[in-house]
């Protein structure tokens, strides 16, 4: 394999990593609190706000029901507003983040809901304030599940990032489409696929290991 292809691959991998990491970070920053609020605003829960719960839950579901490729195209005006352009790797971060946020919100919600309600009761009995319950009890107890969920999100975003090539984003997916498919270079296509498989495998393994180390429930 020529050094030219290798440098193409390396560049594309860096672009993918850049898109996925930024989208994951912003998505977690936005989706994390949203998920905690979804998990704690139901009837009789810590921050009961049922209207909020319904509305946000509805928006989250709506966003998640749109196929990513359509979402990416549909929000091009928004992307242009945020990123100043709708073309390029940086611009592609916008639709990726928009897709990641509700996904992460549901992941965090599920993880937080998985915490035994007896622990909330015990914390209340100790005189914990609601925010203390979130930060001292719910999030630490949910951490292993959150790590697994974010691993899943990362893998999902790598897949999505391949699609943003369609709206002018870069990365491994774009490389595979433009060189591998449109220029009939099966060697490049194969290289892209192999790199993706290895990367996803590494991420999943690392996530699993971290979650297991954090999980003190079973030994």
């Amino acid at each position: 394999m020529s050094t030219q292809i290798l440098s193409l691959l390396a560049n594309a991998a860096i672009e993918t990593g850049y898109m996925v990491l930024i989208a994951l970070s912003i998505g977690t920053l936005l989706g994390g609190p949203l998920g905690v609020m979804l998990a704690t605003s139901g009837r009789g829960e810590l921050f009961e706000a049922r209207v909020f719960n319904r509305v946000v839950g509805g928006i989250v579901n709506a966003t998640r029901s749109i196929p990513f490729i359509i979402l990416a195209v549909a929000i091009i005006p928004f992307t242009r507003m945020v990123a100043g352009t709708s073309i390029g790797t940086s611009a592609a971060i916008v639709p990726l983040t928009v897709a990641a946020t509700p996904f992460i919100a549901r992941i965090i919600e599920g993880a937080v809901r998985g915490v035994d309600s007896g622990l909330i009761e015990a914390a209340q009995a100790m005189g914990a304030k609601p925010l203390q319950i979130v930060f001292k009890v719910l999030l630490p107890e949910a951490l292993p599940a959150i790590v697994l969920g974010l691993t899943l999100t990362t893998v999902l975003l790598i897949g999505y990032s391949a699609m943003v090539g369609a709206v002018g984003g870069g990365g491994l997916g774009d490389l595979g489409i433009r060189y591998g498919y449109q220029r009939f270079r099966p060697d490049i296509m194969a290289a892209v696929v192999i790199v993706l498989i290895v990367v996803v495998q590494l991420i999943q393994t690392a996530g699993d290991r971290l979650a297991r180390r954090l999980n003190k429930r079973v030994r």
Binding site: G118, E121, P140, L143, L214, K216
Partner: peptide, 8 residues
Amino acid sequence: HFNLLSSR
């Protein structure tokens, strides 16, 4: 059921 934090 004790209600201890498993992470602590």
